[in-house]
Design a protein around this nucleic acid. Sequence first.
DNA 1: GTGATGAGTTGGTTTTTCCAACGTACTCGG
DNA 2: CCGAGTACGTTGGAAAAACCAACTCATCAC
Lengths: 144, 144
Amino acid sequence: MMTQVRECSVARTLELVGSKWTLLVVRELFLGSRRFEEIARFTGGPRDILTDRLRRLEAHGLVTRVQYEQRPPRFEYHLTDLGRSLAPIIETMREFGDRHLAGEDGPPARFEHSCGAEFHPVLACKACGEVVRRGEVQIADATT
Amino acid sequence: MMTQVRECSVARTLELVGSKWTLLVVRELFLGSRRFEEIARFTGGPRDILTDRLRRLEAHGLVTRVQYEQRPPRFEYHLTDLGRSLAPIIETMREFGDRHLAGEDGPPARFEHSCGAEFHPVLACKACGEVVRRGEVQIADATT
DNA sequence: GTGATGAGTTGGTTTTTCCAACGTACTCGG
DNA sequence: CCGAGTACGTTGGAAAAACCAACTCATCAC
Protein backbone atom coordinates (compact mmCIF):
# COMPACT_ATOMS: atom_id res chain seq x y z
CA MET A 1 0.00 0.00 0.00
CA MET A 2 3.11 2.17 0.07
CA THR A 3 1.84 4.76 2.51
CA GLN A 4 2.75 8.38 2.02
CA VAL A 5 4.30 11.21 3.93
CA ARG A 6 2.26 12.10 6.96
CA GLU A 7 -0.10 15.06 6.81
CA CYS A 8 0.78 16.84 9.96
CA SER A 9 0.44 20.13 11.77
CA VAL A 10 3.93 19.79 13.13
CA ALA A 11 5.25 19.60 9.59
CA ARG A 12 3.19 22.59 8.54
CA THR A 13 4.46 24.62 11.45
CA LEU A 14 8.01 23.65 10.62
CA GLU A 15 7.57 24.79 7.05
CA LEU A 16 6.72 28.19 8.45
CA VAL A 17 9.33 28.57 11.17
CA GLY A 18 11.61 25.59 10.76
CA SER A 19 14.45 27.06 8.77
CA LYS A 20 17.62 28.27 10.35
CA TRP A 21 17.51 31.64 12.17
CA THR A 22 13.74 32.05 11.85
CA LEU A 23 12.90 31.21 15.42
CA LEU A 24 15.82 33.22 16.71
CA VAL A 25 14.47 36.23 14.88
CA VAL A 26 11.10 35.60 16.50
CA ARG A 27 12.71 35.21 19.91
CA GLU A 28 14.46 38.53 19.41
CA LEU A 29 11.19 40.23 18.59
CA PHE A 30 9.63 38.74 21.71
CA LEU A 31 12.50 40.15 23.73
CA GLY A 32 11.74 43.58 22.39
CA SER A 33 14.15 44.13 19.52
CA ARG A 34 12.60 46.06 16.69
CA ARG A 35 15.36 47.17 14.37
CA PHE A 36 17.39 45.24 11.89
CA GLU A 37 20.68 46.10 13.58
CA GLU A 38 19.48 44.72 16.90
CA ILE A 39 18.24 41.53 15.33
CA ALA A 40 21.53 41.09 13.50
CA ARG A 41 23.62 41.76 16.59
CA PHE A 42 21.68 39.69 19.09
CA THR A 43 21.07 36.66 16.91
CA GLY A 44 24.45 36.67 15.18
CA GLY A 45 22.82 35.60 11.93
CA PRO A 46 24.11 36.62 8.48
CA ARG A 47 22.42 39.83 7.40
CA ASP A 48 21.21 38.52 4.06
CA ILE A 49 19.62 35.49 5.68
CA LEU A 50 17.97 37.62 8.32
CA THR A 51 16.54 39.84 5.60
CA ASP A 52 15.14 36.78 3.91
CA ARG A 53 13.64 35.44 7.15
CA LEU A 54 12.02 38.74 8.00
CA ARG A 55 10.53 39.00 4.51
CA ARG A 56 9.21 35.49 4.76
CA LEU A 57 7.71 36.07 8.17
CA GLU A 58 6.12 39.21 6.84
CA ALA A 59 4.74 37.37 3.81
CA HIS A 60 3.08 34.86 6.13
CA GLY A 61 1.62 37.53 8.36
CA LEU A 62 3.69 36.81 11.43
CA VAL A 63 5.55 40.09 11.34
CA THR A 64 4.88 43.61 10.09
CA ARG A 65 7.43 46.00 8.73
CA VAL A 66 6.72 49.51 9.94
CA GLN A 67 8.35 52.65 8.61
CA TYR A 68 9.65 54.78 11.44
CA GLU A 69 11.62 57.34 9.44
CA GLN A 70 11.07 59.10 6.16
CA ARG A 71 14.17 60.74 4.89
CA PRO A 72 16.20 57.83 4.66
CA PRO A 73 13.36 55.35 4.72
CA ARG A 74 13.87 53.14 7.76
CA PHE A 75 11.78 50.28 9.02
CA GLU A 76 11.25 48.31 12.14
CA TYR A 77 9.66 44.97 12.77
CA HIS A 78 6.78 43.98 15.00
CA LEU A 79 5.11 40.68 15.71
CA THR A 80 1.49 40.48 14.64
CA ASP A 81 -1.10 38.67 16.75
CA LEU A 82 -0.37 35.60 14.69
CA GLY A 83 3.33 36.05 15.35
CA ARG A 84 2.72 36.46 19.06
CA SER A 85 0.88 33.17 19.06
CA LEU A 86 4.26 31.53 18.54
CA ALA A 87 4.98 32.35 22.18
CA PRO A 88 4.24 28.85 23.50
CA ILE A 89 6.71 27.36 21.03
CA ILE A 90 9.46 29.75 22.07
CA GLU A 91 8.64 29.30 25.75
CA THR A 92 8.71 25.52 25.65
CA MET A 93 12.01 25.64 23.79
CA ARG A 94 13.42 28.00 26.35
CA GLU A 95 12.23 25.72 29.12
CA PHE A 96 13.82 22.70 27.49
CA GLY A 97 17.09 24.57 27.12
CA ASP A 98 17.00 25.89 30.68
CA ARG A 99 16.33 22.47 32.03
CA HIS A 100 18.69 20.35 29.99
CA LEU A 101 21.24 22.51 28.27
CA ALA A 102 21.99 25.32 30.69
CA GLY A 103 25.55 26.43 31.35
CA GLU A 104 27.10 26.40 34.80
CA ASP A 105 25.68 29.75 35.84
CA GLY A 106 22.14 28.62 35.20
CA PRO A 107 19.65 29.78 32.61
CA PRO A 108 20.78 33.00 30.91
CA ALA A 109 17.45 34.79 31.29
CA ARG A 110 14.72 34.36 33.84
CA PHE A 111 11.06 35.23 33.73
CA GLU A 112 8.42 35.85 36.31
CA HIS A 113 4.78 34.88 36.32
CA SER A 114 2.18 37.26 37.78
CA CYS A 115 1.78 34.82 40.68
CA GLY A 116 5.19 35.99 41.87
CA ALA A 117 7.18 32.84 41.16
CA GLU A 118 9.86 32.33 38.55
CA PHE A 119 8.11 31.29 35.41
CA HIS A 120 8.46 27.80 34.03
CA PRO A 121 5.86 26.64 31.55
CA VAL A 122 4.18 23.26 31.65
CA LEU A 123 1.48 21.99 29.34
CA ALA A 124 -2.09 21.96 30.54
CA CYS A 125 -5.26 20.64 28.93
CA LYS A 126 -7.25 23.54 27.59
CA ALA A 127 -10.55 21.81 28.33
CA CYS A 128 -10.09 20.82 31.95
CA GLY A 129 -7.23 23.13 32.88
CA GLU A 130 -5.22 20.36 34.50
CA VAL A 131 -1.47 20.09 34.02
CA VAL A 132 -0.70 17.17 31.75
CA ARG A 133 1.41 14.24 32.90
CA ARG A 134 3.03 11.59 30.81
CA GLY A 135 0.60 9.07 29.40
CA GLU A 136 -2.48 11.22 29.79
CA VAL A 137 -2.62 12.09 26.12
CA GLN A 138 -3.58 9.45 23.58
CA ILE A 139 -4.14 9.52 19.88
CA ALA A 140 -7.88 9.87 19.28
CA ASP A 141 -8.25 8.60 15.73
CA ALA A 142 -5.53 6.74 13.95
CA THR A 143 -6.27 8.13 10.48
CA THR A 144 -2.65 8.94 9.87
CA MET B 1 30.08 48.59 23.68
CA MET B 2 29.24 46.46 20.66
CA THR B 3 27.06 43.94 22.45
CA GLN B 4 27.31 40.30 21.52
CA VAL B 5 25.11 37.46 20.44
CA ARG B 6 22.58 36.59 23.10
CA GLU B 7 23.26 33.65 25.39
CA CYS B 8 19.97 31.89 25.22
CA SER B 9 18.26 28.61 25.98
CA VAL B 10 16.17 28.95 22.88
CA ALA B 11 19.34 29.12 20.80
CA ARG B 12 20.80 26.11 22.59
CA THR B 13 17.67 24.10 22.01
CA LEU B 14 17.70 25.04 18.37
CA GLU B 15 21.29 23.89 18.01
CA LEU B 16 20.08 20.50 19.17
CA VAL B 17 16.86 20.11 17.23
CA GLY B 18 16.75 23.08 14.88
CA SER B 19 18.06 21.58 11.68
CA LYS B 20 15.82 20.37 8.96
CA TRP B 21 14.06 16.99 9.49
CA THR B 22 15.21 16.60 13.09
CA LEU B 23 11.91 17.48 14.70
CA LEU B 24 10.01 15.46 12.13
CA VAL B 25 12.07 12.45 13.08
CA VAL B 26 11.23 13.13 16.71
CA ARG B 27 7.54 13.52 15.89
CA GLU B 28 7.63 10.19 14.10
CA LEU B 29 9.15 8.50 17.13
CA PHE B 30 6.45 10.02 19.32
CA LEU B 31 3.84 8.61 16.97
CA GLY B 32 5.31 5.17 17.46
CA SER B 33 7.57 4.59 14.49
CA ARG B 34 10.66 2.66 15.41
CA ARG B 35 12.29 1.51 12.20
CA PHE B 36 14.28 3.39 9.67
CA GLU B 37 11.91 2.53 6.83
CA GLU B 38 8.94 3.94 8.71
CA ILE B 39 10.77 7.12 9.55
CA ALA B 40 11.83 7.54 5.95
CA ARG B 41 8.36 6.87 4.57
CA PHE B 42 6.35 8.97 6.99
CA THR B 43 8.64 11.98 7.08
CA GLY B 44 9.59 11.94 3.41
CA GLY B 45 13.12 12.99 4.28
CA PRO B 46 16.20 11.94 2.30
CA ARG B 47 17.61 8.75 3.72
CA ASP B 48 21.14 10.04 4.17
CA ILE B 49 19.93 13.09 6.07
CA LEU B 50 17.69 10.98 8.28
CA THR B 51 20.66 8.75 9.08
CA ASP B 52 22.62 11.82 10.04
CA ARG B 53 19.81 13.18 12.22
CA LEU B 54 19.31 9.89 14.01
CA ARG B 55 23.04 9.62 14.70
CA ARG B 56 23.12 13.15 16.00
CA LEU B 57 20.09 12.61 18.23
CA GLU B 58 21.74 9.46 19.52
CA ALA B 59 25.00 11.29 20.18
CA HIS B 60 23.12 13.83 22.27
CA GLY B 61 21.25 11.19 24.21
CA LEU B 62 17.78 11.91 22.86
CA VAL B 63 17.45 8.62 21.04
CA THR B 64 18.80 5.11 21.48
CA ARG B 65 19.55 2.66 18.74
CA VAL B 66 18.47 -0.82 19.73
CA GLN B 67 19.40 -3.99 17.92
CA TYR B 68 16.31 -6.07 17.23
CA GLU B 69 17.80 -8.65 14.90
CA GLN B 70 21.11 -10.49 14.77
CA ARG B 71 21.62 -12.15 11.50
CA PRO B 72 21.54 -9.26 9.45
CA PRO B 73 22.13 -6.78 12.22
CA ARG B 74 19.11 -4.49 12.32
CA PHE B 75 18.32 -1.63 14.60
CA GLU B 76 15.38 0.38 15.73
CA TYR B 77 15.14 3.74 17.37
CA HIS B 78 13.59 4.76 20.67
CA LEU B 79 13.29 8.07 22.42
CA THR B 80 15.11 8.28 25.73
CA ASP B 81 13.63 10.11 28.69
CA LEU B 82 15.49 13.16 27.52
CA GLY B 83 14.05 12.71 24.04
CA ARG B 84 10.56 12.34 25.46
CA SER B 85 10.98 15.62 27.23
CA LEU B 86 10.75 17.25 23.81
CA ALA B 87 7.03 16.43 23.91
CA PRO B 88 5.93 19.96 24.89
CA ILE B 89 7.80 21.42 21.94
CA ILE B 90 6.18 19.01 19.51
CA GLU B 91 2.78 19.49 21.11
CA THR B 92 2.86 23.27 20.98
CA MET B 93 3.96 23.11 17.37
CA ARG B 94 1.13 20.77 16.58
CA GLU B 95 -1.30 23.07 18.33
CA PHE B 96 -0.05 26.08 16.39
CA GLY B 97 -0.42 24.20 13.14
CA ASP B 98 -3.87 22.87 14.03
CA ARG B 99 -5.01 26.32 14.93
CA HIS B 100 -3.52 28.41 12.18
CA LEU B 101 -2.43 26.21 9.33
CA ALA B 102 -4.98 23.42 9.17
CA GLY B 103 -6.40 22.26 5.86
CA GLU B 104 -10.11 22.33 5.08
CA ASP B 105 -10.86 19.02 6.74
CA GLY B 106 -9.44 20.16 10.04
CA PRO B 107 -6.36 19.00 11.88
CA PRO B 108 -4.99 15.76 10.43
CA ALA B 109 -4.61 13.99 13.76
CA ARG B 110 -6.48 14.44 17.00
CA PHE B 111 -5.56 13.57 20.55
CA GLU B 112 -7.49 12.97 23.69
CA HIS B 113 -6.70 13.95 27.26
CA SER B 114 -7.55 11.61 30.12
CA CYS B 115 -10.31 14.06 31.12
CA GLY B 116 -12.22 12.86 28.05
CA ALA B 117 -11.96 16.01 25.96
CA GLU B 118 -10.01 16.48 22.76
CA PHE B 119 -6.55 17.53 23.77
CA HIS B 120 -5.27 21.02 23.10
CA PRO B 121 -2.27 22.18 25.06
CA VAL B 122 -1.99 25.57 26.70
CA LEU B 123 0.87 26.84 28.83
CA ALA B 124 0.49 26.92 32.57
CA CYS B 125 2.77 28.21 35.29
CA LYS B 126 4.50 25.31 36.96
CA ALA B 127 4.51 27.06 40.33
CA CYS B 128 0.87 28.07 40.66
CA GLY B 129 -0.67 25.75 38.08
CA GLU B 130 -2.68 28.53 36.48
CA VAL B 131 -3.03 28.80 32.73
CA VAL B 132 -0.96 31.70 31.46
CA ARG B 133 -2.52 34.64 29.64
CA ARG B 134 -0.81 37.27 27.62
CA GLY B 135 1.11 39.81 29.67
CA GLU B 136 1.39 37.63 32.76
CA VAL B 137 4.99 36.74 32.08
CA GLN B 138 7.70 39.37 32.45
CA ILE B 139 11.42 39.26 32.15
CA ALA B 140 12.86 38.93 35.67
CA ASP B 141 16.42 40.16 35.23
CA ALA B 142 17.60 41.91 32.12
CA THR B 143 21.14 40.54 32.14
CA THR B 144 20.94 39.63 28.51
C1' DG C 1 34.75 66.38 4.26
C1' DT C 2 35.47 62.53 7.46
C1' DG C 3 33.25 59.34 10.15
C1' DA C 4 29.38 57.12 12.00
C1' DT C 5 24.66 54.96 11.72
C1' DG C 6 21.00 52.08 9.73
C1' DA C 7 19.16 48.91 6.55
C1' DG C 8 20.00 46.45 3.60
C1' DT C 9 22.64 44.27 -1.37
C1' DT C 10 26.14 42.04 -3.86
C1' DG C 11 29.47 38.46 -5.44
C1' DG C 12 31.79 34.62 -4.48
C1' DT C 13 32.88 30.64 -1.38
C1' DT C 14 31.58 26.93 1.63
C1' DT C 15 28.30 23.86 3.62
C1' DT C 16 24.03 21.33 3.42
C1' DT C 17 20.71 19.06 1.28
C1' DC C 18 18.85 16.33 -2.20
C1' DC C 19 18.40 12.32 -5.19
C1' DA C 20 18.92 8.13 -7.48
C1' DA C 21 21.53 4.25 -7.48
C1' DC C 22 24.18 0.87 -5.21
C1' DG C 23 25.70 -2.60 -1.41
C1' DT C 24 24.94 -6.07 1.93
C1' DA C 25 22.71 -9.54 4.29
C1' DC C 26 19.35 -12.02 4.71
C1' DT C 27 14.15 -14.49 3.62
C1' DC C 28 10.71 -16.31 0.66
C1' DG C 29 8.46 -18.57 -3.40
C1' DG C 30 8.98 -21.58 -6.98
C1' DC D 1 19.35 -22.78 -6.84
C1' DC D 2 17.45 -18.44 -8.87
C1' DG D 3 15.28 -14.25 -8.74
C1' DA D 4 12.55 -11.01 -6.16
C1' DG D 5 11.72 -8.65 -2.03
C1' DT D 6 12.83 -6.43 2.50
C1' DA D 7 15.63 -3.65 5.66
C1' DC D 8 19.17 -0.34 6.62
C1' DG D 9 21.85 2.09 5.23
C1' DT D 10 26.19 4.34 1.98
C1' DT D 11 27.93 6.66 -2.18
C1' DG D 12 28.75 10.27 -5.76
C1' DG D 13 27.45 14.11 -7.90
C1' DA D 14 24.19 18.02 -8.63
C1' DA D 15 21.43 21.66 -6.63
C1' DA D 16 20.19 24.71 -3.07
C1' DA D 17 21.09 27.21 1.11
C1' DA D 18 23.97 29.54 4.08
C1' DC D 19 27.96 32.29 5.00
C1' DC D 20 31.02 36.32 4.77
C1' DA D 21 33.19 40.54 3.82
C1' DA D 22 32.68 44.36 1.38
C1' DC D 23 29.83 47.68 -0.68
C1' DT D 24 25.72 51.02 -1.38
C1' DC D 25 22.82 54.88 -0.27
C1' DA D 26 21.01 58.39 2.50
C1' DT D 27 21.55 61.29 6.39
C1' DC D 28 23.51 63.35 10.52
C1' DA D 29 27.32 64.91 13.73
C1' DC D 30 31.52 67.03 14.05
